[in-house]
Design a protein around this nucleic acid. Structure first.
Length: 243
DNA sequence: AATTAGGCCAACCGCGTTGTG
DNA sequence: CCACAACGCGGTTGGCCTAAT
């Protein structure tokens, strides 16, 4: 437990640190120093800029300045109608994932696209309808990702079964015996899947209720690295809903 | 001419993720 | 495995400029 005096000194140090970093608009000289630094050391190691380039800016500020303004591959000038339509299309698909959208527009920064969209389309597109909201799009996106991710895993499992089947048919062994002993948690329905049949992408249900619990499970599974559990949830849930 | 409103954009902030010792 | 630092992303803010009143 730090004493009152120690805490006071700590706060004082923090204030001093904050006063050390320059904030606000960049000067031409600062730009020059930053460009020089990147020429010599390359991008990255932004926290070393202050020390190595003699800039009184923190790493975060330097990175932002470089990425949004100084990078040589940046495209200057107004957003073209073609770029605008790309932004609209990708925003409809990805929502506010500006960096993702920016990757499809060479020379444009996420900040630029974000600013453009906010000034040109935010108000126009405003609607009380839930289906037009950010929340809805984010949810839709997550749903699509969930499907893609699990369909891939499902396909991988089918591929694996093909291999297993051919192997054990050759060796005259029953598939069920193998699955039982594999310690994999698999819904029984999946054992009768025809390995030669293509797995169709199921239609996303209109009713969101069944998804609500899955969002959390998905998050848990992704972070908890519990693939088997995730797989079994998938089989259990979707085999009954869509197949 | 002065004031106000709104557009635009650079920069900052907070937070989540990733990397490293 | 954990703690900390560095990085990256999306949201927000503040200042400048211009058109409208």
């Amino acid at each position: 437990m730090a004493s009152l005096g120690e805490r006071e000194r700590e706060r004082e140090r923090e204030r001093e640190m904050e006063e050390e970093w320059r904030k606000g608009p960049w000067t031409a000289e600062e730009d020059r120093l930053l460009v020089e630094y990147v020429k010599l050391h390359g991008e990255g190691k932004w926290n070393a800029v202050a020390r190595l380039a003699g800039l009184k800016r923190n790493g975060k500020s330097c990175r932002l300045r470089w990425v949004n303004y100084l990078r040589p591959d940046l495209k200057r000038g107004r957003i073209t109608p073609n770029e605008e339509s790309i932004i609209l299309e990708l925003h409809a698909r990805w929502g506010n994932r500006w960096s993702t959208i920016a990757r499809s527009l060479p020379g444009r920064t996420d900040n630029e696209i974000k600013n453009y969209w906010r000034t040109h389309f935010k108000k126009k597109g405003k609607s009380s309808c839930y289906q037009n909201s950010e929340k809805w799009r984010t949810r839709l996106l997550k749903r699509q990702q969930y499907f893609q991710q699990h369909q891939q895993r499902y396909q991988d499992e089918i591929d694996m079964k093909k291999v297993m089947k051919s192997f054990f048919v050759e060796n005259d062994t029953k598939l069920s015996t193998v699955v039982e002993s594999s310690h994999e948690v698999v819904h029984p329905n999946t054992l009768i899947v025809d390995v030669d049949q293509e797995v169709p992408m199921p239609e996303a249900p209109n009713d969101l209720s069944i998804w609500d619990g899955l969002w959390n499970m998905d998050d848990l599974a992704l972070h908890g690295n519990n693939n088997n559990m995730n797989l079994s949830i998938y089989h259990h849930t979707f085999a009954s809903h869509f197949y």
